[in-house]
């Protein structure tokens, strides 16, 4: 005889990712590593910013390079003789906690104070996937258009630090960096918003200060 049964599953894929992310954070905390999830569109300046921070911060830095073209970015970081793991995400539009878990296994965590995780260049998909980082930093450049912030509210609402980058070319691309900054503040009153240029290093010291403040709790 056959019978029909209802089976409750209640397995939320987002919740499962969050659990893994919490576990990642525990692993990081055990080795006293502070991790920053670096988000933003392709070309916004994520890799350049991390490179600048490696040069200017007086800390032991490590990098997980998760951008789709990870080999290129990973090679860029390797020049600075810091531990780097490149994640091959294939066509995936975001990193998830599981991928990061494996990258952590390949890093000498005891030798790292500050870990940057460069996410896949995308302003939408990474939002729902916590990685286990302590803060989220989103890098948006003026050349993406000054309505980019208001068009992508979720990512700005979920970030602790918003970097409005490439202000050196704002005039040339007819973008109002003030509008982008105030849109970010409107979406997320708790976020710290910094205007920067990696060409002139405007705002870089401020970014360093903010990250160090977060690290010191």
């Amino acid at each position: 005889m056959h019978k029909i049964a209802e089976v409750e599953i209640q397995h939320d894929i987002m919740v499962a990712n969050k659990k893994l992310a919490k576990r990642n954070q525990k692993i990081l905390d055990k080795s006293n590593v502070f991790a920053v999830d670096v988000l933003g569109a392709i070309g916004s300046g994520k890799t350049s910013l991390i490179e600048t921070l490696i040069k200017k911060m007086n800390l032991k830095i490590g990098v997980i390079a998760g951008d789709v073209i990870s080999k290129f970015d990973a090679n860029r970081f390797e020049q600075y003789k810091v531990p780097v793991v490149g994640l091959n995400t294939g066509k995936e539009c975001h990193l998830d906690a599981h991928l990061v878990e494996h990258a952590l296994e390949d890093l000498p965590l005891e030798k790292i104070d500050l870990l940057f995780i460069e996410n896949v260049g995308n302003l939408i998909c990474p939002v729902d996937f916590d990685l286990g980082s302590h803060i989220r930093m989103v890098v948006v450049s003026v050349s993406e258009g000054d309505d980019t912030v208001e068009k992508h509210p979720l990512i700005f609402k979920d970030s602790d630090l918003v970097v409005i980058n490439k202000v050196d070319i704002a005039e040339a691309v007819d973008a109002d960096e003030e509008k982008m900054a105030s849109d970010a503040r409107m979406l997320n009153p708790d976020a710290i918003v910094i205007k920067s240029s990696l060409k002139t290093e405007k705002g870089v010291d401020e970014i360093i200060n903010v990250i160090e403040n977060f690290m010191n709790g």
Partner: peptide, 15 residues
């Protein structure tokens, strides 16, 4: 509003 939940299934099995 951010769920992606597999809630339940209805199955047939032999008893």
């Amino acid at each position: 509003g951010r769920e992606c939940n597999v809630k339940n299934i209805k199955i047939e099995k032999s008893d």
